[in-house]
Design a binder for these strands. Structure first.
Length: 537
RNA sequence: GGCCCGUUGGUCAAGCGGUUAAGACUCCGCCCUUUCACGGCGGCAACAGGGGUUCGAGUCCCCUACGGGUCACCA
């Protein structure tokens, strides 16, 4: 076979060489040990919570080493591309503090950062591989391939385009030439060389900080390198791009482990130095007795947009994801409650090899803690922003008197033991309802007479202690024991305890069994509204 | 079916040949307390099963079971 001739037939007039590209994209000038990592999503516009999880890993590996974190859009599949999808991804990740040093509109000298725009680059390597007899055109149709697959199943052979099944592998130039001249569609396949030429390896080894040492048989499949539209498959693009963009650490989902032997072979054949790999296990979901991968179709919490709609603060989602990434994160956070997350000593080695089950209950807890550490002003700002998007009616109430709103959010905040009432902004409306007459839902108090009597003597000028005393005194006169210990020891003769008396007041004023500190609630509400509600109005 | 990976309480998990097998979430109880919370203390609850190796195994090896991934002109 005259491979040079074939390469000219395939890519006439293409004169650029791999060496030219080496010169155009020289090694980065970075300090020793600086890692270059990337996020490489498809521009579907949909961000999976797992994408964010992987993004954090890559971002931390780059940042912690003083390296580069960049975004490459893998738009090689037309069917999946969505208008504006790439921008949505950048914006969505930005909300969670993910920033890219390089991306489509911030070229760091290694672009373009969209794979479709790199077609000419891939063709240089494609032509070079054909010249070296490492790639060939394949004219098999979809039907041919499914027939092959069916035959392999009956013969119990390994699936895939390899060995005797690779029909187009040995087509002579005389057959190829007319086909190509008539413009018959073809894909370019890898021509797997004799194993002996690939360092005689009987097995290849992947060493991964998260997964340990994995040994696998070498690739023997003639995988597709370029699709019929001339755009590469993931595998070929991965090798070319991550080499040319000088990626040092490939952070990706562990579903790629199975194709690692192919990637290993591609890097070797192309003469590229292989990067390090960090394969991240998927986030799982409890499903009946077992667990499965979080699914875009079945699980709403799979989408990053869901967290925004629920009103989970971005910080909380990030904190939770970090607890899944490195299990000592929680201990670190307890010891360093106010440190920025970048101070946490993240390590890929500490990641679990198996997929972690995503637990919304735990997220709520983490989120409550995160919210409890925020100032009232910060809570107000985020809540208002959330409501503007997702609950306009509530937004109108919150912004009617911002100072008032901040007061309602200040109760029990800022001390050593802050309250933990809210996990997500979507819960805030119910939590704050009694502060707004439009939302207030009255509940009948257990002792309306007591409430009315208390309305007579309520004095907002009283400081908290004296206010307590006045509740106790009136309660005692009406049969409520003022001393909890005494009441617990012997309740005979009492209508209830001062706790019951308070509960009655709380019900009248807030319409609920539980609320923040009643004295402060009353202070904020003002005498008129308090006495009105105590009187059943 | 082939090839890989995984399996410690309901969940997240520490553990790196000798531990009373940490800690966190959930749930329950008690304490604190004017209430609601917060907080404190305590409780329930685990090494998938079977064989080895070893004085000794959650930790090393093998087998089985179960779970996951992959085997596209998708990434």
């Amino acid at each position: 076979m005259d491979w040079i001739k074939l390469s000219e037939l395939l890519y006439p007039g293409l004169t650029e060489t791999p060496d030219d590209l080496e010169r155009r994209y020289p090694p980065r000038k970075l300090p020793e040990g600086a890692a270059v990592t990337r996020l490489a999503p498809s521009p579907t516009g949909f961000i999976h919570i797992g994408n964010l999880y992987i993004a954090f890993v890559g971002e931390r590996v780059a940042r912690d080493s003083g390296g580069i974190y960049y975004l490459r859009i893998e738009d090689t599949d037309e069917k999946r591309a969505v208008e504006g999808g790439a921008e949505q991804i950048v914006r969505g990740l930005d909300d969670y503090g993910i920033r890219f040093d390089e991306c489509a509109d911030r070229d760091g000298g290694y672009g373009p950062y969209n794979q479709r725009a790199r077609a000419a680059i891939y063709h240089v390597y494609a032509k070079d591989m054909v010249r070296r007899g490492l790639a060939y055109p394949c004219f098999c149709s979809e039907d041919d391939l499914s027939a092959m697959r069916a035959a392999q199943e009956t013969e119990k052979a390994n699936f895939g385009y390899h060995g005797k099944w690779a029909k187009c592998r040995h087509l002579p130039l005389e057959t190829l030439t007319p086909l190509l001249q008539t413009g018959a569609p073809f894909v370019l396949r890898l021509h797997v060389p004799q194993l002996s030429t690939v360092n005689c390896q009987l097995s290849i080894v992947l060493t991964d900080p998260a997964k340990g040492r994995i040994e696998m048989p070498p690739n023997d499949i003639d995988h597709v390198l370029l699709k019929s539209d001339g755009i590469p498959t993931y595998h070929f693009a991965h090798a070319v791009d991550d080499h040319l963009m000088r990626t040092t650490h490939v952070v990706r989902g562990d579903e790629w482990i199975a194709t690692y032997p192919l990637h290993h072979m591609l890097f070797d054949l192309l003469g590229f130095e292989r990067p390090k790999y960090i394969h991240v296990a998927p986030l799982m979901k409890q499903d009946g007795g077992g667990k499965r991968k979080l699914s875009k179709r079945k699980d709403p919490e799979c989408a990053l947009s869901w967290y925004a709609a629920q009103g989970y603060p971005a910080d909380a989602v990030r904190e939770y994801l970090f607890t899944l990434m490195n299990s000592d994160f929680e201990d670190w956070r307890r010891a360093n409650p106010s440190s920025g997350i970048e101070a946490f000593p993240f390590s890929p080695k500490k990641m679990n090899a198996a997929g972690a089950l995503f637990d919304l209950q735990k997220l709520d807890d983490v989120s409550k803690n995160a919210v409890s550490r925020m100032t009232a002003e910060a809570v107000c700002a985020q809540l208002t922003e959330w409501a503007e998007r997702f609950d306009p009616t509530f937004h109108a109430l919150l912004t009617r008197d911002p100072a008032y709103t901040i007061k309602t959010l200040s109760i029990g905040r800022g001390g050593q033991k802050p309250r933990k009432d809210i996990a997500r902004w979507g819960e805030a409306k119910a939590y704050l309802s009694f502060f707004f007459d439009e939302l207030f839902v009255p509940a009948p108090p257990s002792d309306p007479d007591f409430c009315k009597a208390y309305a007579e003597i309520y004095d907002p000028a009283l400081p908290r202690d004296e206010w307590f005393a006045s509740v106790k005194a009136l309660g005692e006169a009406r049969g409520y024991c003022p001393d909890m210990k005494q009441y617990k020891a012997d309740s005979t003769g009492w209508k209830g305890s001062v706790a019951d008396a308070s509960a009655s007041l709380r019900a009248a004023v807030t319409g609920r069994e539980s609320s923040p500190d009643l004295w402060e609630v009353m202070q904020i509400l003002g005498k008129e509204r308090v006495t009105g509600r105590l009187n059943g109005g």
